[in-house]
């Protein structure tokens, strides 16, 4: 019936025919997508198109009306505790220091508080948070808080991360810096990323593959591969491939 289960190659994450309505609001219309090892995939769509609902379903926090979520071929539909996500809001707890905040996923997995903090500490350097372990979130800049939120997501599940407009709340300059920083950090992390955005430039700059979603009810309108070599820098924004994809997406929306 569909290509979902038929592929021979096992995908890191497969989202098959997810359907979801809220009362009378038809939100997701048989959305399917897949994410491969070490791939960076973006979901691009208008605000309110149900992208965040899709993420909640993938993370297992919300139940889909129909469809399945496969992670490395295993069924994780409606199950929490496998993948975590990161929001536009950092969702750091104001009463916990940065170190205490990022070690929460480890504590939830049953690691003791001290062992969890010991395990988290070495990552502070890579995430540009060294020296801020014992600060409270309100003492950090917006960009740093997002990096802490990313570290928390990473410490929960190192192989797949869902990022839901993580830089949406930042100013343009910080946003650009964070995008470059993210690419750099991902080189070291070997993680597969599913990324929600409504910023076309951001999607092309970061991704290997872009799913363009339609208005509600959201379905996959088109899929674009981004054949731009890595490592990428600011020149990407003016290269021919970039402009071609951007044009195609603009025509679509």
């Amino acid at each position: 019936m569909n290509s979902c289960h038929k592929t021979n190659k096992m995908k890191k994450l497969e989202v098959c025919n997810i359907k979801k309505s809220f009362d009378t609001l038809y939100t997701l219309d048989h959305v399917s997508l897949s994410l491969e090892e070490n791939q960076f995939v973006s979901i691009l769509g208008p605000s309110g198109s149900g992208k965040s609902t899709l993420f909640n379903i993938i993370a297992g926090v919300q139940q889909a009306d129909a469809g399945t979520i496969l992670i490395k071929g295993e069924d994780y539909t409606g199950k929490t505790g496998r993948i975590s996500y990161m929001y536009q809001k950092d969702l750091l707890m104001p009463w916990r220091t940065i170190l205490e905040n990022v070690s929460i996923p480890l504590i939830l997995k049953g690691t003791g508080k001290r062992a969890a903090e010991k395990e988290a500490t070495p990552y502070f350097e890579l995430f540009g948070l060294k020296g801020f372990e014992d600060r409270y979130p309100h003492q950090l800049s917006g960009g740093m808080r997002q990096r802490a939120a990313l570290l928390r997501t990473y410490l929960f599940a190192q192989d797949i991360m869902l990022l839901d407009e993580p830089f949406g709340g930042l100013d343009a300059i910080t946003k650009r810096k964070m995008q470059r920083w993210l690419l750099e950090v991902l080189d070291n992390l070997k993680a597969s990323i599913l990324f929600i955005t409504h910023d076309i430039d951001e999607a092309i700059f970061l991704s290997d593959k872009i799913y363009v979603l339609s208005d509600r009810p959201a379905k996959v309108k088109e899929v674009f591969d981004v054949p731009i070599e890595r490592p990428r820098d600011d020149k990407v924004f003016t290269c021919e491939a970039f402009i071609k994809i951007k044009e195609a997406i603009l025509n679509l929306l």
């Binding site: 926090v61 929490t80 996500y85 969702l91 707890m93 929460i104 939830l108």
Partner: peptide, 27 residues
């Protein structure tokens, strides 16, 4: 208490008691 924060913790597999201990009581 922020519903999104609760969802985030649930996605990380937090149980009812974890949610009270880690989020609801301090918040």
């Amino acid at each position: 208490v922020d519903k999104e924060l609760l969802n985030l913790l649930k996605s990380m597999g937090a149980g009812r008691w974890d949610i009270y201990k880690l989020v609801k009581f301090p918040a």
